[in-house]
Design a protein around this nucleic acid. Structure first.
Lengths: 166, 166
DNA sequence: TTAATATTTCAATAAATCCTGAAAGTTTAA
DNA sequence: TTAAACTTTCAGGATTTATTGAAATATTAA
């Protein structure tokens, strides 16, 4: 396969993947493009390569920066801004996990707590509360598990072990 | 809070959550409704409680059955079909993980493999291949980690330990 | 076998989401 | 201070995705 073709396919693939996980396709494609570019790209580079408008490129770049997946890369003597992506995929995964935890899991846990404040105590209410508690428990444990994964490398002992496998 | 209100909010919450994760809102709401119902529900129950059409209810119920999250519950002497959800949330999580692995992660891994077949060998091509390999590696490891989690309870030794924490 | 009851399908429509492009805003070189 | 270069915003339009509802198909009681 030609490199150009492979890059093109990768961008498509990453975009399709994203849209299945609640990330908009273009944002994922912009991310893909930056992931496989050795050089930083300007907004215009991205517009050209993905055939998208300036507004769209700008919006998605900003959102990628909010997720800490992409940075501005100011070049000396250049007026334009350039962008580059974090290339370490493990780091990328951690940042996505961190962000989704913050944006979705933590509010979810808070809402679940509120829902157990039901002021009835018949069989039906008890069953409801139990289901909600059960969900609360599982979600909380998963949240904690993700934290452990994220932080494991910062831990002296486990960090060393994990690095051996990378 | 009143039970009715709490149930209503739970359904909303679960629906919003789903739509952020690539699952359509109504499907998640139908799931929520079944999760918190002690009794199995008929298509009409679901239509009424969520104010959705017959076609929509039917489609989403079928999809939930494809995911193994909901079953038909045939009642003796009843012509209608009733539906009930798997209530063990850990089991629910495992089934979702299993299904998404099968539908998305495994095809992704296969596609990534193909993309490293680039018939150029300059610096740019090498960098591209390295990025793709890096992604391949991380995705594969995560896939394996999820498998371990799913299977851990089937393991005599770890299974016992895990059950202690549940 | 019939007719009543249930379920499924799918074309048309509605709703949600995303993208465009031009105008407004900002920055910087001179 | 000006004007060119660049970035951001956002209303309107385009696209994608979800929903309706009625017709077709299937099932069952009698």
């Amino acid at each position: 396969m030609k490199l150009t073709e492979a890059k093109e396919q990768f961008t498509q693939l990453w975009g399709a993947l994203g849209s299945g996980w609640g990330i908009n396709r273009t944002m994922a494609q912009v991310h893909a493009l930056l992931l496989i570019s050795e050089e930083s790209l300007s907004t215009e580079d991205i517009m050209t390569q993905l055939s998208i408008s300036r507004g769209n490129a700008n919006m998605n770049l900003r959102e990628l920066m909010n997720w800490n997946l992409v940075y501005k890369d100011i070049k000396a003597g250049e007026r334009k801004e350039f962008f580059k992506a974090e290339k370490d995929i493990w780091e990328v995964a951690k940042r996505i996990a961190r962000e989704r935890k913050r944006r979705e899991i933590q509010p979810l846990i808070a809402s679940l707590n509120v829902l157990t404040d039901v002021d009835e105590s018949n069989k039906e209410a008890k069953s409801f509360i139990q289901t909600v508690n059960n969900i609360h428990q599982v979600v909380t444990k998963m949240d904690a598990a993700v934290d452990t994964l994220i932080k494991v490398e910062e831990n002296k002992f486990f960090g060393t072990i994990v690095k051996m496998f990378k």
